[in-house]
């Protein structure tokens, strides 16, 4: 059991996905108006945090949006250990959030 875990870790280290790969996969499949990919793995490329703003999310529940992001990263997910989707917003929602954070309510 322990050995399997170690082997898997080594494989991930060799096969590691880059931030750029994740970003380009999401760009090509979800044509986002805003995207941010953060490598949270500390360099081995197995753990990412993503924010995606896309018109394709319009009218879709959060679960479906996350499914779309997961679907766009099917290949990459094989080598990613952890993917955190911190934002999956429509452009409208994103603009609202941006104006809220930049103009604190008095």
């Amino acid at each position: 059991m322990q050995l399997v875990v170690v082997k898997k870790l080594q494989r991930e280290r060799i096969m590691g996905v880059t931030k750029e790969q994740v970003e380009s996969a999401l760009r090509s499949k979800l044509s986002p108006s805003h995207i941010e990919v953060i490598d949270t793995s500390g360099g081995c490329g197995a753990s990412f945090k993503v924010e995606v703003v896309s018109e394709q999310f319009e009218g879709k529940r959060l679960l479906e949006r996350h499914r779309m992001v997961n679907g766009a990263l099917v290949e990459e997910m094989k080598d990613i250990h952890a993917l955190s989707i911190t934002k999956a917003l429509t452009p409208d929602q994103w603009n609202k959030q941006q104006s809220q954070t930049s103009q604190p309510v008095a």
Binding site: L62, L63, H66, N70, L83
Partner: peptide
């Protein structure tokens, strides 16, 4: 669930999502 990662949460038999979704909700 057709979901690639864990944890996975179900409520009333319905698949809810993973930790990002549960936190958001």
């Amino acid at each position: 669930s057709m979901w690639p990662t864990f944890p996975q949460i179900f409520i009333n038999g319905e698949f809810i999502g993973g930790s990002d979704i549960i936190l958001n909700m």
